[in-house]
Simulated assay, not measured.
Amino acid sequence: MTGYLLRRAGQAIIVVLIVSAIVFVLLRLLPGGPARAILGPSATAEQVLEFNREQGFDQPIVIHYLSWAGGLLRGDFGYSYRLNQDVLALIGERLPKTLSLTVLSTLVGLLITVPLGTLQAVRRNKPVDYLLTGVVFVVYAMPVFLLGMLLIIVFSQTLDLVPPQAPQGSTLGEIFAQSDGLILPVATLALLTVAAFSRYARSATLDNLGEDYVRTARAKGALSRRVIGRHVLPNALRPVVTLLGLYVPFLFGGSLITEATFNYPGMGLLFWEAAQNRDYPILLGIVLVIAAATAIGSLLADLAYALLDPRVRYAGA
């Protein structure tokens, strides 16, 4: 297992470096560049040249990237053009809020997904299966911002049950102190998780319901509820767990739009504002964090799959 972990860690580092290089190049190639975005259209050519010199944009792109990557190794993610703050400090302040929102909504989504997929499989081709499948596909096809706005219209403006804006605060304590404001953002991301995974939970449950061990257990007189709970569900969870690790970038993507919709002060809102202002250091820093989270999520999914299925063995373990 140690050898496998080392290999996967090496692969993860390579992936993160490749992603950072691609994003760095693409941001450098955007028309206008950061100088005009920061200094404004009235800036003189001399001011633009001075800005590019100070920020390293006058260097060849390879040299500039290597200089930036070298700063990363020293913990230097650069400074925000607009906020004039250290990027690492900004991410460190916002990341716990985004992680809290993402983890909470994912747990809520999975708690709904597993029994929902099981119910659909047990009631296959029945009215409840068709109804739930239709609802899931509608949510899956719906843009995140539209889903969030619909929840605001129904539960905030029409029913007046919860506030339309997410809680505001600089610490997690202040965020959770206004827990009613978390309901709609968490619900939005949880519904996305349900829409993404319920189909796989249904399919995996159906596959396991047709296995010989299920028929044998039922032939011995085991209750259907016991067979599903003790035998079918653990096996049906494996593809869901595997996909969960690969779903990390989509979770962050949904979080970005959700935070902007509900004005949640997390990393997604920071990315949104940086994109509008062409604040390249923040964009690069957040993309790097997402790439690292994706690589780590994939590794954790593989390990969880091995724990759920003892038959799985990795070469060199």
Rank of each mutant, 00 (worst) to 15 (best):
T44S: 15
F57P: 04
A12K: 03
L172P: 10
K220E: 11
Q168W: 01
T188L: 06
E50G: 01
I175A: 02
S20G: 02
V114Y: 06
Y81Q: 05
I153L: 15
I38R: 08
D180C: 00
P234V: 09
T193Q: 14
T205M: 12
Y200M: 15
G297R: 03
F250V: 11
L159E: 15
G10Y: 00
A195P: 05
G32L: 07
N208A: 12
L270W: 06
I112P: 04
T193K: 04
Y213Q: 03
L29Q: 14
N208W: 07
G173L: 06
Q165M: 14
H64W: 01
L206R: 10
T261L: 07
T188A: 08
M142Q: 08
G266K: 02
R53L: 09
A275F: 09
L146Q: 07
T106R: 05
I61D: 00
R124H: 14
N235A: 13
P239M: 08
P127L: 08
V135Y: 06
L270K: 03
D58K: 01
D86V: 10
G181L: 02
G268E: 04
L269W: 11
L27H: 06
I22P: 11
A201W: 10
F77T: 07
P167D: 11
Q55K: 12
L99F: 08
A12L: 00
A204Y: 11
R226S: 11
I13S: 02
A304C: 14
G109I: 06
L223Q: 13
G316V: 13
I228G: 02
E54H: 11
G117N: 07
T171Y: 12
F57L: 13
T106A: 11
R8P: 09
A315V: 06
E259N: 02
V19I: 12
L49T: 07
A219L: 06
T242V: 14
V287I: 12
A292V: 13
V232L: 06
V87S: 04
I296R: 01
M1N: 12
L146N: 11
N277I: 00
T2S: 14
F51P: 10
L72H: 06
R313H: 14
L209H: 12
Y305W: 00
G78I: 01
G169M: 11
A306H: 06
G169C: 09
L246I: 04
Y81E: 07
R53W: 02
A291I: 05
P239Q: 02
